[in-house]
Amino acid sequence: MKLRWNVVAPLALLVVLAGLPLFATEYMLHIGVLVLLAAYLATGWNILGGYAGQHSLGHSLFLGIGAYTSTYLFAQIGLTPWIGMWVGALFAAIVGWFVGYLCFRYGLRGPYFALVTIALAEAMVYLVTNLNALGGAEGLDVRWVGHNPALMQFEGKTAYYYIILIMTALLLFGVQRYSRRRFGYQMIAVRENEDAAEALGVDTLAVRIRALVISAVVTALGGVFFAQYYTYINPRNVFGEGPSVQMLLFAIVGGLGTVWGPAIGAILLVPIAEFARSSLGNTFSGAHLLLYGVVLVLVMLFMPNGIVGLVQTLERRRRGGRA
C-alpha cells in the first residue's frame, strides 16, 4: 500500500505531540494546551464558517454556554464535568438550532448572520453579568477538590494536555473523514452556490442548520475544557469577543474550509502571541492583539485562501494543472 502523506504526517505529528510531556516543562505544556485548545476551537468554527460559509462572529456564545453549564452544575449539584459537558453540548445544540432556524429560515445571510451572532454573544455577556445566580460580573470558580480524575481535575498540566490533544485529534479526524463525504460536499455546495445546491436536491436550510449545530456542540465541549483548565470563568472571557475573534482568526490565517488550516493557524500564531504577551506584557500590553490584527490584514491582502490555500495553489501549479 502506498503511504499517503495526508495520513502519515498527521499520525507522525500526533506521536510527537503525545510524547511532548515526557520532556517538556510546565510552561511548554501550558503553551501546548493553549495551541491545542485554539486549534480545536478554530476547527470547530471552521465547520460552519469555512465549510458551510456562514461566518459566525459570535461563536463565544457556544463556548460560554458549555463553560457555564458544566461549571454551574458542578457548583450547584456537584455534577462531574464529564457529564456536565454533554449537558452543555445539548444546550448549545438547542440554542444553535434555534439561532440557525431563525436566521436561515428567514434568509439572513453573510454579514447579517454575522451581526446576529455578535449581538447574541454580546447579549449573553450582559445577561450573565446581571444574573447573580451565575456569579454575575465576578464569574464562577471551578472549586478545587484536589487531584480527582472523576471530576476532571488534575494536578499539573499533563492530563489537561492529553485531554485536549485527544479532543483535537478526534475532531480533526472527524472533519477529515466527513469533509470528503456527502455532508461535507453539501456544506461546500451551499457555500459556493446555494441556488445550484437546492436545484440539485440539497436541503440547503437543513444543511446550514446542521452545520451550525455541530459547530456549536464542538465549541461548547471546548468551553467545558476551558473552564476546567482555567478553573475560572467570567462573562467577558467566555462570552466576549476575544474567543470569537480568535476562532475565526486562526481559521482564516490557516485556510478557511480546509481540514488542517485552522490547526496550522493556531500552531503558528498562538506561540508568537504568547511570546509577545509574556515578553512585552509589562511594557506593551495588548501587543499580541495588535499582532493578530496585523497578521489578519496581511493574510487577507496577500493570501486570501490562507496558508493551506496557498500551498494547494502552489501544489496544483507544480503538477501542471491550471491553478
Binding site: 460536499y185 461546500i188 459556493e192 440539485l200
Partner: peptide
Amino acid sequence: SGHQVAGLGLAQIPEGRKIFPEMTVYE
C-alpha cells in the same frame, strides 16, 4: 421547496453556469 422538487426528478440547469467553483469537476 427547491430540493424537494429536484428530488422528484426535475432538474434545473440554472442560468449563468452556476458551478461550484472551488470543487473539482469530479466533485
